[in-house]
Nucleic acid binder design. Structure first.
Length: 550
DNA sequence: TTACAGTCAATAAA
DNA sequence: TTTATTGACTGTAA
């Protein structure tokens, strides 16, 4: 297929700023987004909240209602952005109008779409919806749902901005925690023996993941299979994955139609739309993910539930871009490729109408399959990558510590690792993932740098966490610990350890009684891991040792 | 080197 | 079966 024609809409030029030259300016003056058809009815998905992060991550914190903020958040999330991309209308039937349709939204929002500029440099003609310039203060239309009012917007920006900064600044390395952590966590060791490395995960608690990657093995990193040498403790040595090769760069593929930098896609709405489509047509995530996005099911699931704002995406935009381009396709086309997939018959795939240059079966899928078959082929190295599953205690301890300090020093991590019998890399990964995942989520509404036009005054009060995920940090405050708060950190860590120990003690007690702990676990949780603030219970380390030691 | 973004993919949960 | 979760891998950027 030849390169898609540029969807240049004359009106786009109307947007004076036109140039991406000054995005800041643009952000200030116009909030032009690529918008999603507001008429579309989406499945109201329950946005993932902070609570959804690491399991029990905040089990000690009062649950917050995820809901209402969802919408607000959505609004607040995508703030001053260039242009809001509109999605083709929902296609329940044969969306005749959406064929190359650029019509959908135009009329709805003031008629002629005023495109700022060709939204897609090389998108297939008609594939892309027109861009609609909307002034921030545009009023009286659903459109407002997508565009945050300037006031709120700015406020929001300010808040998120400062919040982000706070977060980024993070807690200073709690070096002083090391000893404390060591001491406190040490008492957990005993129980670790009991609950440690679940059998299913690893054979031995001391052989978890490999430690820090041995970069010296080559840039390719991962491809050196001499893991054994990487780290003496890397017994479970997971086969390193081969470098992925996707064909998401095939210019002839409409799904790869580029999106101008000035375009802002409301990823949240886009995801709702995708979710709707999938549900509407009973398309499994796995199919869509691999076939359309060249990604795994899990990745898609995560993205749909927790989309990052467009302006915060980097290379990840590609995935959303494909989603976006996909929904721009006429229903027939949209489903065409999926149908082919369903047929699962290679030959049939060739028979089916070639949809607008849709790319062939995703390389990703092929890669995985080939990799699989490779390993299945009697090659002993083809074992599935074992996956570590933290024991309850490990998880609780890590989570609790994370609540106090998201960025423990290397030393502290080492200490934690030792006491929890985990690899340093595992601990590091935990914190890395935790930080990342705590940042994401509904409350992740920091504007992109270039969109954040002004230095903003930090929000007076609080509530950076409009969606309820907040609690996790025992109030985001714990994240912003001042060096002077180390004392607090230490106390917290101490408490955390105590809690963990109390919990383990209870666990041991249950086991002693031959009870099915599973049944009691919840209770145990509540009792053992009290609220952040009320780390509770007094416990006697001695007892603990007795209780947990085998 | 280190942190992070984007994902994979195992596996838990629904 | 399908979706959600999450520990770890890989490439990049600072």
């Amino acid at each position: 297929m030849e390169p898609p024609a540029v969807t240049s809409n004359p009106s786009s030029i109307s947007n004076s700023n036109g140039g991406r030259s000054d995005k800041r300016h643009k952000a200030q003056s116009n909030a032009d987004y690529l918008q999603i058809d507001p008429n579309s009815t989406f499945i109201s998905s329950n946005p993932r909240t902070f609570e959804d992060l690491p399991e029990n991550f905040l089990d000690t914190i009062s649950p917050q209602q995820p809901s209402q903020s969802s919408l607000n958040h959505s609004l607040a999330e995508h703030t001053s952005s260039p242009q809001l991309a509109s999605l083709a209308p929902m296609s329940i039937s044969n969306e005749s109008s959406s064929h190359y349709g650029i019509n959908s939204m135009g009329s709805q929002y003031g008629g002629s779409s005023s495109l700022d500029k060709p939204s897609f440099s090389n998108g297939p003609a008609g594939l892309l919806s027109p861009l609609h310039i909307e002034r921030r203060h545009t009023s009286g239309s659903d459109y407002n749902r997508y565009i945050k009012e300037e006031d709120n917007l700015e406020t929001h920006l300010m808040m998120s901005s400062s919040q982000q900064q706070d977060i980024d600044r993070e807690t200073p390395p709690a070096v002083s925690n090391v000893e404390l952590a060591s001491t406190m966590i040490a008492s957990i060791i005993g129980e670790q023996r009991n609950s440690s490395p679940s059998p299913r995960a690893y054979q031995s608690g001391s052989k978890f993941s490999s430690a820090i990657k041995d970069e010296s093995e080559g840039l390719d990193g991962g491809h050196t299979n001499g893991d054994g040498s990487d780290n003496p403790s890397s017994a479970h040595v997971a086969p390193k994955r081969a470098k992925r090769v996707y064909s998401t760069t095939d210019a002839s593929d409409p799904l790869n139609a580029e999106i101008d930098n000035d375009i802002y896609i409301d990823t949240r709405e886009l995801c709702k739309r995708i979710a709707y489509e999938l549900k509407q047509h009973s398309i499994p995530q796995a199919i869509f993910a691999e076939r359309i996005l060249c990604r795994s099911q899990g990745t898609l699931s995560d993205l749909l539930r927790n989309p990052k704002p467009w302006n915060k995406l980097k290379s990840g935009r590609e995935t959303f871009r494909r989603m976006f381009n996909w929904v721009q396709q006429p229903l027939q086309m949209r489903l065409g490729i999926l149908d082919m997939y369903k047929s699962g018959d290679a030959t049939e795939m060739n028979v089916l109408p070639k949809v607008a240059g849709m790319s062939p079966p995703t390389p990703a899928q092929n890669v995985r399959q080939s990799r699989r078959s490779h390993s299945d082929g009697g090659d002993q190295s083809g074992n599935k990558r074992p996956r570590l599953v933290f024991t309850d205690i490990q998880k609780r301890t890590l989570q609790a510590i994370f609540r106090e300090t998201q960025r423990p020093s290397r030393e502290m991590q080492q200490t934690i690792a030792e006491h929890l019998r985990l690899d340093l890399s595992t601990v590091a990964n935990f914190f890395m993932n935790a930080r990342r995942r705590s940042r994401s989520g509904p409350n992740n509404d920091e504007p992109a740098p270039y969109q954040q036009v002004r230095p903003i005054t930090p929000p007076p009060e609080s509530p950076p966490r409009a969606n309820g995920s907040a609690p996790r940090q025992s109030g985001g405050s714990s994240r912003r610990l001042h060096p002077t708060s180390l004392q607090h950190v230490e106390e917290s860590v101490s408490s955390v350890a105590e809690s963990a120990i109390a919990y383990s003690r209870e666990l041991a007690a249950h086991e002693e009684n031959g009870e099915d702990y599973k049944m009691e676990e919840e209770e145990g949780e509540l009792a053992a891991i009290p609220d952040d603030q009320t780390v509770g219970g007094i416990y006697d380390p001695q007892d603990e040792v007795q209780a947990v030691s085998i």
